[in-house]
Design a protein around this nucleic acid. Structure first.
Lengths: 197, 197
DNA sequence: ACAGTCGTCTACCAATTGGTAGAGAGATGT
DNA sequence: ACATCTCTCTACCAATTGGTAGACGACTGT
């Protein structure tokens, strides 16, 4: 069995806690307890809480970028099919690890420099996506509109629905296997309809 | 000039702070300072922080319900026009008071009983909306699908885009007057496309 | 054999947290 | 005139926060 390093375990636990409850609401003590170590060990690996937040963001961004990137590259040529592929790719981690997308929503509360760094981190992916949307619109394979805003809207739909279990409970949705598939399919048709020419 | 009561001022400030930075990240001291009063005065009006949170949620829900309800009732008969009306109605408060929708997103982190109470509070509105979607689908004036999930998706799009300024910055959007109008129009066509039959 | 360095620990610390106890000022009813 | 009620205050408090200082054992390379 692969011995995961203390540092990795801390990042892992912190990602889960930060993503589900928010950075401010989680203390170093709590993270340390969950990892099975003392707070000072956490502060040994990350000199301050801020630095830990940076580390978590970096790790999360890397994971998301890899997942999405791979999905897009492996997807068929048709842009709507490609959207499908991204949905499927993001849906799995989102369900298995709600914290991952939850952390994305924490970005609004980050210090400006942290937010800026994260933005720079995902910028290539975003620009490629927007460029792609733009050329597909020109080719008449996608509904016309401001590519940047359309991208933001699609992303808002996806992360919104994937990170708001309470919202889904409010409309009587059940989080079982069947419900999950129904939700994913509904999301796909919704996005297809919103983006189709 | 109307003398707003201390209680109201506390609710107001707390709504803004909770909505923009999260419940856990805001202390009673900070709220009190902003109101211009001592923390113990806050604790006089609300016996505990939890009770204050309850009060804020109640006030926010009431405000949102009134706004949306009025918009829907005043809107024309066509369901897509009605969606337009809701978008316009929610967009204005969302921009003038980001905290209002921001608080909605805090719901995921609430204690279960608080979340349940809030859900009960907005349930009538939600059910009416879903029923409406359902009958419009039957009438062939909306794209067919699970009305509850479609409602959740539309809502996720709207609140997602309205509460994630960082997301919009990431795609190079400017928060000026023109940008705002462009965003609103783009959101409207996006939703129309997603919902149209 | 030994000096260093690596990782974790115990022992603290000042600041901040939500909350209690109760004093005092002002208005109000009798 | 006086008792009561309403509201805000000062003075505390125990628990928790992020963070510092430094001891201690287990490995290293020489």
């Amino acid at each position: 069995m692969t011995e995961r390093s203390t540092r990795e375990r801390i990042l892992d636990v912190a990602l889960d806690l930060f993503g589900t409850r928010g950075v401010d609401a989680v203390s170093l003590d709590e993270i340390a307890r969950e990892v099975g170590v003392r707070k000072q060990t956490v502060l040994y690996w990350f000199a301050s809480k801020d630095e830990l937040v940076d580390g978590v963001l970096e790790a999360a961004a890397a994971e998301l970028v890899v997942v999405i990137d791979a999905a897009v590259r492996a997807a068929p040529d048709d842009p709507l099919d490609r959207v499908d592929a991204v949905v499927r790719a993001v849906f799995r981690p989102a369900v298995r690890r709600p914290a991952l997308l939850g952390l994305v929503r924490e970005v609004n509360r980050l210090r400006p420099d942290q937010a800026a760094r994260l933005r720079a981190r995902v910028a290539p992916l975003v620009e490629r996506g927007i460029g792609h949307l733009s050329s597909e619109m020109d080719a008449g394979r996608l509904r016309r509109g401001d590519p940047a805003l359309i991208a933001a809207l699609g992303y808002a739909t996806l992360t919104g629905i994937a990170t708001e279990p309470e919202l889904l409970r409010a409309v009587g949705w059940a989080a079982d296997r069947a419900g999950l598939r129904r939700l994913r399919d509904e999301l796909r048709s919704y996005l297809r309809a919103a983006l189709a020419p």
